[in-house]
């Protein structure tokens, strides 16, 4: 089994988001970056579990500048065998997918895994684009994955429920909660990560189809109106007369 796991580098979930004075860029100074939780907890850990039972190799791939290498090393510490960094700014989903596809197309991966979405740009796009560019089937939002021989059985979320599908390898999937339990890297893993191969690949030609012009912080709520715990029925009146939601 040759598995490729796409990891992106995102601000830790508790980050206080701020932008430059002209609102054109996200301020990264002092921000702690981590592996996108879906990529780490679900895609990578499930890939490692499969490797442990079926044998094979898990490669992690990241499109980004050199400053994301600490994040890549963490993926190696959790247990990936090797890593690839494609040296390009990841500022458009299609361009990221093109970069990964250019690398992966002739490497014979049996399984390519992405996360459900990145928690910074929330696109949920790269996995499906990659499948199209590699001309492979795509299963989105996988919550369970089993592999027997050359067939994958996948449970995934669909509108209004879940579905179980079967698909021969190779394929691309995006990983959602349920695939695996988070793992914490141990000391041995951290030591081993230092010497595992991290290959830097120059950027391929890619099309940047979108860009971000400006940002705006979400507006906070106005004051919370407190209702006396002895009279919760007042809440129902307020929801009807004031908020007009019931």
């Amino acid at each position: 089994m040759k598995i490729l796991v796409c990891i992106s580098n995102v601000p830790d979930t508790t980050t206080k988001i701020t932008f430059s004075a002209d609102n054109s860029t996200f301020n990264t100074a002092g921000v702690q970056f981590v592996i996108n939780p879906y990529d780490e907890w679900y895609a990578l850990v499930r890939a490692l579990e499969l490797k442990e039972t079926l044998g094979g190799n898990v490669t992690i791939i990241h499109v980004g500048a050199a400053d994301s290498e600490a994040t890549i090393r963490k993926g190696l510490a959790i247990g990936a065998d090797d890593a690839v960094r494609i040296d390009a700014e990841p500022n458009d989903a299609f361009a990221v997918a093109e970069q990964i596809a250019a690398y992966a197309k002739d490497k014979g991966f049996d399984l390519v895994m992405a996360g459900k979405e990145t928690i910074n740009y929330n696109g949920s796009m790269v996995g499906a684009m990659l499948a199209e560019l590699l001309n492979l089937p795509f299963v989105s939002m996988a919550t369970k994955l089993e592999i027997a021989g050359t067939t994958a059985t996948i449970e995934h979320d669909i509108d209004g429920g879940t579905e179980v599908v079967e698909c021969p390898l190779p394929l691309v999937l995006s990983a959602n909660k349920g695939m695996a339990e988070a793992r914490i890297p141990n000391m041995r893993g951290i030591m081993a990560a230092r010497t595992k191969p991290l290959t830097v690949v120059p950027a391929a030609a890619a099309d940047k189809l979108t860009s971000i012009k400006s940002y705006e912080l979400a507006k906070g709520r106005t004051e919370c109106k407190f209702i006396d715990a002895a009279h919760p029925e007042q809440l129902i009146e307020l929801l009807h007369n004031e908020a007009k939601v019931i």
Binding site: A93, N122, M125, A128, M129, E132, S140, M141, T210
Partner: peptide, 22 residues
């Protein structure tokens, strides 16, 4: 929604169409 997340980006890659999701 789930179907939209599965097919809109795939179509975008096929058509080389820029996409804004969500």
């Amino acid at each position: 929604d789930f179907t939209g997340k599965e097919i809109a980006p795939r179509l975008a890659a096929k058509l080389k169409a820029g996409i804004v999701a969500g």
